[in-house]
Design a protein around this nucleic acid. Structure first.
Lengths: 368, 368
DNA sequence: CTGTTAGCGCATTCAG
DNA sequence: CTGAATGCGCTAACAG
């Protein structure tokens, strides 16, 4: 391994001079600069980042602590957004899968501390995530995807309440009345916010929330399966279901198919998170799309601005969702058993075929 | 920030002693051990990993250099497999998206060098990837997913040749005769190996490869679209297509749908990479599944064994693929225009409906 | 068993 | 403008 002193020796200068030309923040005789640069090249010298970090007392690295890269395409896209931002800014990035496990998350946050990273982008595993030690150590933190009530960190989230509300509004408008919800885990804000949106939409429409139509999954396929199985046992059966993420949707759709039910006639479905395959499904799946890549990239941008010295109060970036309407939520056909509430409005009979692929976008507050 | 000397001082011992109790590789008076451990706890002392790495002259970190986390579920699963292995072994991991770009890959490999990482798991961007500097520096390298002909590194790959051959065999057996191929980029072995498998299957069946039925994409959706558009212009049209990864399959399926063609009657399809949504597609998609997570995890295992001192010659782990048969490749119906070759065998008429979901597994050599 | 000493590779004083 | 000296926080020699 060739060090800075090797370069200094063969260039006939001191290590300090080499350091100066390498970092270019000090005046050095152009002649020496040339010599040093040539020697650096000849010897293939690469500064040792570990030594540099020790000396500088800060480490040019970020840590990204998320739940799981595998979670549908969503987190993978977020990761890529962050990685691009980190790369552009010249920071490598630790990838840490906390896996919804607070203790694993804690271990990774301690790592961030021990590595003295420049910043952390974090998807908190729950409300008890403790940012204190990081903040005390002067390590910048940006929350991505999930809020952490009570914390003072910058955060970037999608409009979960608005997106969910829009989805349920859409189902109501299309004539569905017993709308179920497969919600996420309540301890994370993506879980609770989407459920809030569902509730809000129903309440605003003057209908009350039927607790037996709300099931809570864990954002994974088996949870979606279980929840859907339970919902299908309800009598009367729900005529629609809003599913709060794509992995649960995959599980739920399998159950629906195995039960021999058809979308949307037997049951309408709207999922959360857009997927490439949505239009290619047996019945095109209506989804609430999130700008996952942007979410990651925006988090990176906020982190970078903090690292570069911005010290205003905590910023919250709210990203809009998109409702991608497909056949799985087409207007209801058949008789309406006016279950409750008003609004037996004139409803179009089965308008949208599988070919319909309208996309509406809406920017909305209310992220809470 | 509290350092080892702070601990030493308040415990009334030397820094060396603190270091010894922390690393536990030397005998220390139990009484002192207790004192030190309590002080460590009281002060919330966390050893500085950067300083430790500098002193030890090796960094307890891995670098994972892959093409793109977002590439379908495949790389995300690989990443997770690696991450789990790294976590279990107590190593954090840099995530580096080389993005099929040799120069970006080179930058990340230099980073690995400058960070003096303990090991690198790499999906080479092409044949010119240079492992030399890493090897010279004593940094262990494991190749994952793609081979690097000429290198001496351990590698973990799936049986791309065998998987592709099996897919095409399956299409042949089901009566398809003009079987097209949307191949990956030839500079990576996953691209070339799958194409080889396609060729082998045809040749073994005594049919020759029609170059106008082979298109090469870039493993992404737009490439799949373009390739499929070109293939559909061929006259006579191909009656089946083998698509070498899932993102290209998504693009290709959209084109097929837009053209108003039905699977498998107008054209049969087999894709590479299993996806959760495959059984839920309009026509269930037959896929060649790869054990992506295992691939990552196995790579981690090989890397760890090297780090722990194993120094035998290069190992190659070949992982089996699985053919997941669904409706998109159901036995051909309709007349056979005996295009060429023998084998106008008696073929069953449209056996498998959408409900069929048989799965065959086959272990096979020939990874080349 | 424990403390003292030395240095990992680098950037930054402080003199010159 | 440049070089010598200093120390980031830690562990490994070496004495004691």
């Amino acid at each position: 391994m060739t060090t800075i002193v090797d370069v200094a020796r063969t260039a006939g200068v001191s290590a300090a001079t080499v350091s100066r030309v390498l970092n270019g923040n000090s005046r050095v005789d152009p002649q020496l600069v040339a010599t040093v640069e040539r020697v650096v090249k000849d010897l293939g010298y690469r500064p040792n980042r570990v030594a540099r970090s020790l000396r500088l007392r800060h480490n040019r690295v970020w840590a990204l602590v998320i739940s799981d890269v595998r979670t549908g395409p969503f987190f993978a896209d977020v990761v890529r957004g962050v990685e691009d931002g980190a790369y552009e800014a010249g920071y490598p990035m630790f990838l840490c899968n906390a896996d919804e496990d607070p203790s694993k998350e804690a271990i990774y946050l301690q790592l961030a501390l021990a590595e003295n990273v420049a910043g952390v982008i974090l998807t908190p595993s729950g409300p008890s995530t403790d940012l204190g030690p990081l903040v005390d150590a002067g390590i910048h933190v940006v929350l991505a995807d999930r809020r952490l009530p009570g914390s003072q960190a910058d955060s970037v989230v999608t409009d979960n309440v608005g997106g969910a509300r829009q989805a349920v509004d859409h189902l109501l408008a299309n004539g569905y009345r017993r709308i179920a919800c497969i919600a996420g885990p309540p301890r994370v804000t993506t879980g609770s916010d989407r459920l809030s949106g569902y509730r809000l939409a129903l309440e605003e429409a003057g209908r009350k929330v039927n607790p037996s139509l709300v099931r809570s999954g864990d954002f994974r396929e088996p949870g979606g399966r279980r929840a859907m199985e339970e919902l299908l046992e309800q009598r009367p059966r729900p005529d629609a279901v809003f599913i709060c993420n794509n992995r649960m949707a995959a599980g739920a759709l399998q159950v629906i198919e195995e039960a021999g039910l058809a979308l949307p006639d037997d049951i309408a479905v709207v999922g959360f998170d857009e997927i490439v395959w949505a239009p290619l499904l047996r019945t095109g799946l209506t989804t609430v799309g999130q700008p996952a890549y942007d979410l990651g990239h925006e988090s990176a941008r906020l982190l970078l601005s903090r690292i570069q010295g911005y010290s205003g109060s905590a910023r919250t970036v709210l990203l809009p969702t998109t409702l991608n309407i497909r056949a799985s939520s087409a207007p209801r056909s058949g008789p309406l058993k006016a279950t409750a509430g008003p609004r037996p409005t004139g409803l179009p009979l089965r308008g949208a075929g599988p070919g319909r692929r309208a996309t509406r976008s809406r920017r909305s507050g209310g992220g809470g």
